[in-house]
């Protein structure tokens, strides 16, 4: 769950239509229309990346009239499907995938089960990536991949389909890096031995 207190805005006249704000927006809240960004306040998760990225320094964050709570309650999705997806991805339901919003893996998985098609929709539904925008991405992509979503990267380097995990390391790499604690960490993080490589990442 994310409590979004801020929303992006900008000065229309000096905007040069460079589209950089659109490219870095994690939740598809910005659409370019006639070389000007249109910001959908309902989708803006308040990350501020567009403001930081704007080369003309004509964007800003302003306080919302009332905070926007963005969440998918885990129980809103079928729990057996959520847990099956997490097991397939090899991700513990309780782990905080987004450490900025403390969004658990179970909520990200619930968003995918409820129909999120891509990373942007997961962000818009859960508010993940409203903070650093970095460390939560791979687990979310892995859950999307495990659910069979189209992993073809979108245009303009928004994201790349990087989903490797501890469970995917092939035997040849284990032999090449015997001091990498792969087997030890697998036992520590999966004592019941229920996780496996994603078939798509098998080499």
């Amino acid at each position: 769950m994310a409590v979004v207190k801020l929303v992006a805005d900008y000065a229309v006249e000096p905007c040069i239509g460079c589209r950089l704000c659109d490219i870095v927006c994690p939740s598809n809240a910005i659409e370019m229309v006639g070389r000007k960004p249109i910001i959908d306040d309902a989708l803006c998760i308040g990350c501020g990346r567009c403001v930081d990225r704007c080369p003309e320094d004509i964007m800003w964050m302003e306080e919302r009239a009332a905070p926007l709570t963005v969440t998918v309650r885990p129980e809103a999705a079928p729990q057996d499907a959520v847990l099956a997806l997490l097991d397939k991805a090899g991700i513990d339901p309780a782990v905080s995938v987004c450490v900025c919003t403390l969004t658990p893996a179970s909520e990200i998985a619930a968003a995918v089960v409820k129909g999120a098609k891509d990373l942007e929709e997961v962000c818009a539904m859960t508010g993940m990536r409203s903070g650093c925008g970095i460390y939560c991405v791979a687990p979310a992509l892995r859950l999307l991949q495990a659910a069979g979503r189209d992993m073809k990267p979108p245009k303009a380097h928004r994201w790349y389909p990087s989903t490797l995990s501890l469970w995917d390391v092939p035997a040849e790499a284990l032999a090449r890096y015997p001091d990498a604690f792969i087997e030890e960490d697998r036992k520590a993080f999966d004592p019941d031995g229920k996780y496996a490589p994603l078939p798509e990442n098998a080499r």
Binding site: V97, I134, Y135, C136, V137, A138, P139, L141, R142, W159, Y160, P161, S162, T163, L164, S165, L166, V169, A180, F181, I182, E184, D185, A188, F189
Partner: peptide, 14 residues
């Protein structure tokens, strides 16, 4: 994405 893999899909040691 690679930074995220390092921090989030592997352990401290691995």
């Amino acid at each position: 994405e690679t930074r995220s893999v390092y921090h989030s899909l592997f352990g401290n040691r691995s």
